[in-house]
Design a protein around this nucleic acid. Sequence first.
RNA 1: GGAGAAAUGGCAGAGUGGUCGAAUGCGGCAGUCUUGAAAACUGUUGAGGGUCACACCUCCGGGGGUUCGAAUCCCUCUUUCUCCGCCA
Length: 423
Amino acid sequence: MLQVPFIRENKEFVIERLAVRNMDASQMVAEVIELDESRRQIQTELDNTLAEANAISKEIGMLFKKGEVDKANALKAKTTDLKESSKDLSEQLAAKTDALNELLYKIPNIPHESVPNGNSDADNEEVFREGAVPKLHDDALPHWELAKKYDIIDFELGNKITGAGFPVYKGKGARLQRALIQYFLDKNTDAGYTEYQLPHLVNEASGFGTGQLPDKEGQMYHVTEDNLYLIPTAEVPGTNIFRDVILNENELPIGITGYTPCFRREAGSYGAHVRGLNRLHQFDKVEIIRIEHPDNSYKALDGMIEHVKSILNELNLPYRILRLCGGDVTFASALTYDFEVFSTAQDRWLEISSVSNFETFQANRLKLRFKNSNGKKELAHTLNGSSLALPRVLAGILENYQTEKGILIPEVLIPYTGFSIID
RNA sequence: GGAGAAAUGGCAGAGUGGUCGAAUGCGGCAGUCUUGAAAACUGUUGAGGGUCACACCUCCGGGGGUUCGAAUCCCUCUUUCUCCGCCA
């Protein structure tokens, strides 16, 4: 959520930058400013009314103490009007505040200056590429065929137990998945991230804090009986650790990591692109989250990119990094880099990580602040990224490491799997 | 799930209708002392809105009510603790 004073003071800039997202924000911006102005005006009026009522109450108290009951009772009559108008004003204030907030929830973050113009993922800018695409043998298979051939992932079984998009991993498949989780967590903690085990269900306030609510609730599974949501990413419980928190400047930066399953309804997705592990309703992910001083957040973002790169280099997978264009960058993000691994047998790129700087957009909703050196409270910057999303990494390994003898295990994972080939 | 008790500032803890945003202690910060530190002493120290700055307003788990006036009384929800039941 953008800060109102910022919008007020940078009206043209806000409109101009939001145009990168292909939106015309001029109407919304004007409305925000107008609503805020009238909100403040009503606030002042209400404050004055309450101040008067408070003063009278105090006086009545004194008069009663002195025993001047008649005078006190006379004053009581005066409060009736004040009560009525304060009630009226506070209703008006609530209405304005609600309207203002509702509008603010609809305004996305301001894209960073490096975000390119563009309408869709076709306009994303490739900024890095690494790793040779292996030459596969003639009978090379897509991962869902490999999964069946080696009996390591059972999609039909998941279908039976739950439904589409809930695969069952078994044997070496399950072990490989666990090895990856362990390996990712080790890499992250080695890089200074503190490991957390987080709840997989969150309340409304948390969903709101990171921006899934109120608009994107259709993406989450809702447990209606208890009004809780299954997490779509560890970002939600992880970032909400810091909701309503005021940090000391010297506590920054903070880096945390956590493994969680992620649940996404993915309503409206279907077809070949969602085959196999490409798109699931439940998947595993290891996430990294950083809370940063505003002066350092872009340096931190670069650091996160380097960190994810080092993992992919160790896994020796062919990948590329994209800087998302204005049309593709998510609602809350100012700048996002996507990592994609090349799926050799499918001949397409699969997104395996998304690393973003949200600047103060989430922090403003979360009320996540720190006391700066002047003792002033300032919104912190939040960042997060996957390191990494499991299923597509798994797909990439299965497809890129397949040989006629079986699927080789990347060297760095062997200590974790305890085997070097799936055959 | 049943019965009872409780929820106050970073923490501990007083306050049961008026001058209480709230005693006191601890912690934090600043200063005195010290070569430096500790100790001791002095001062300072919640959040949001509003203002050029003040003033002023709001907030004592959440919501609602009674009252001229609520941390304090009433209703309700949530959470925590104790006991019972169930259970990985």
